[in-house]
Nucleic acid binder design. Structure first.
Lengths: 132, 132
DNA sequence: GTAGAACTTCAAGTACACTCGAGGTCAAGG
DNA sequence: CCTTGACCTCGAGTGTACTTGAAGTTCTAC
């Protein structure tokens, strides 16, 4: 399978696939007279990268995640990521609640409506300070 | 309240606050002899922006969301965003499941483990193609 | 009234994640 | 054989979201 086919199968552009290889997010493809030659399993690797990217992992994070699989460092990393994913989920839930409230209410401006969310986020304001 | 105080209260840097104003994500602050003078309500506006950003909204999206509040266009936009938030939540859930499975299993390499997720994402693969 | 912190604008710089273009190679059909 | 389209590398370009720095002004405390 050549790069165009893998691109079609995964929905990842050719240039992005080359970029992922260069960044070591996916294993370097075998070459047949210079051209990349992929197998079905490579689509799996790309799918993992895609999922991680969509879940908000940076290139560097994905590299660590796929590059050090199974080892102790990996477990620690994965556990940390799991926490981050849970936290991002929580923030998304808040945003969903905010949007639903805003769609529901009849306030004339966001300043007033916004108090809904501030009251909410104030509860854990100082606690969640100094992230990132 | 001057910009430094608002920055402290919200956890958003001074330069980012100026940037947000310039990008019209927050209302332009009243000036007292050239310097920005904020009120408590402005912290609300910043909180809304922060939440939206953390939920994955781009600057342009936040601008639309806060700039056209209440109008018809706004409702349509907000409903679309709500869908996006739900979808992102779903992807995060998948990533969480993947991480939990990987942490649980004893596969020697990610290629094998990855089949778990590919089997999963294949179910809705072609359907969710051509997003973005 | 003067030091120094905090503020101002504006332009330029940075990090990330790709994307594009030039210039060239390879493979399949007519 | 030759065209056409997909591929190659490599360096430069793009968009996003800020950050930093220069050069100057204002506020606060002594």
């Amino acid at each position: 399978m050549k790069i165009g086919e893998l691109s079609r199968q995964t929905g990842v552009s050719r240039s992005a696939l080359r970029f992922y290889e260069q960044q070591r997010l996916i294993p370097p493809a075998r070459r047949r007279s210079g051209q990349r030659d992929y197998e079905a399993r490579d689509a799996t690797a790309v799918a993992v990268v895609q999922l991680a990217r969509k879940a908000g992992f940076s290139i560097a994070e994905v590299r660590q995640l796929v590059g050090e699989f199974g080892r102790d460092r990996w477990r620690r990393l994965a556990l940390r990521k799991l926490d981050q994913v849970r936290e991002t989920s929580e923030r998304l839930r808040e945003m969903r609640v905010l949007l639903e409230k805003l769609l529901d209410c009849e306030c004339p401006d966001l300043d007033f409506c916004g108090r809904i969310i501030q009251k909410h986020s104030a509860r854990r304001g100082a606690a969640s300070r100094s992230r990132r």
